[in-house]
């Protein structure tokens, strides 16, 4: 069984809309205790493309990202209102198992955070807990394929049993990407994946993101506008918890329709 032919989890309902909208957010508001962090965000994310979320610090882009795989659930005071659907299904529906959701919507974090285990175990952990391999051979295959896709295989194939924490920063981040794609998610969320990396490592990861677009829908939060321009097809600009505008990356960077976007991309604040 190869990764690409693996069945989708059975919760997935048939696509509802005619277009290939993967994720749809409708009137999403997020509160931390009394404080509101997001205001009525409406955003459709199409399948098999990269969308960048940009905006100044504290604008709510990470908050929005983390509501897509319900990572906000672990913050006790956090409350999400509105509707987020994955292939037409409400992900905050009590019927949804958050664990299955996160298997479908993977995540890569700001700082590389490999488990203090071997490289192999890092990648194999997800498939193991989701029961995606029936035997050792199959697991080996998943690990190899994921590392290859993450462009790390050639560098680590001889030392799969050495600890993942021993790799360089850029390698660690690619390991985290390999770990995320090993469970063959449909969507990958990336929260400033390159902010802790040097320029060369950043370039590698950016290349990788572009390649991964073939098979995954990617949502990336970034501080660097150049990065957004380089890797994404669509860009959404957030400001003070409001989604100001969203459109083709070219259009956002060359002819933004909102004044605030204009100010931000020309460096007047942020």
């Amino acid at each position: 069984m190869s990764i690409s032919t693996q069945e989708k989890p059975a919760v997935a309902s048939p696509k509802t809309s005619s277009s290939d909208v993967k994720i749809a957010a409708k009137d999403v508001c997020v509160f931390y205790g009394e404080k509101q962090a997001l205001f009525n965000v409406n955003l459709d994310i199409a399948a098999n493309q990269v969308i960048s979320l940009i905006g100044p610090s504290g604008c709510g882009k990470s908050t929005f990202l983390r509501s897509i795989n319900r990572m906000n659930d672990v913050v006790p005071s956090c409350r999400v209102e509105g509707l987020i659907t994955l292939e037409g299904q409400d992900i905050y529906d009590p019927e949804i198992d958050v664990v299955e959701l996160r298997a479908r919507v993977g995540m890569v974090f700001q700082k590389p955070n490999p488990f203090p285990k071997s490289i192999y175990d890092n990648v194999a952990y997800g498939p193991r807990i989701h029961g995606q391999a029936t035997g050792k051979a199959e697991l080996d295959e998943i690990v190899e394929r994921s590392l290859q896709r993450a462009g790390l295989w050639n560098e680590v194939k001889d030392r799969l049993e050495s600890p993942g924490t021993g790799l360089s920063g850029g390698q660690q981040q690619r390991l985290c990407i390999a770990r995320a794609i090993a469970v063959s998610p449909e969507v990958i969320l990336m929260d400033e994946p390159c902010s802790a990396l040097d320029p060369i490592a950043t370039a590698r990861v950016e290349e990788l993101i572009d390649e991964l677009r073939q098979n995954f829908t990617i949502v990336i939060v970034t501080h660097s506008m150049q990065q957004a321009a380089r890797v994404s097809q669509r860009t959404a600009f957030f400001h003070l918890g409001i989604l100001v505008e969203e459109g083709d990356t070219d259009q956002i960077f060359t002819r933004p329709s909102d004044e605030r976007t204009q100010d931000y991309i020309t460096g007047r604040f942020g």
């Binding site: 996160r102 993977g106 995540m107 974090f109 955070n113 488990f115 952990y125 807990i129 090993a182 469970v183």
Partner: peptide
């Protein structure tokens, strides 16, 4: 970060 990493690949709490 370890907890987040595990949650991110879909481990239950």
């Amino acid at each position: 970060s370890i907890r987040e990493a595990a949650l991110g690949v879909g481990a239950s709490e």
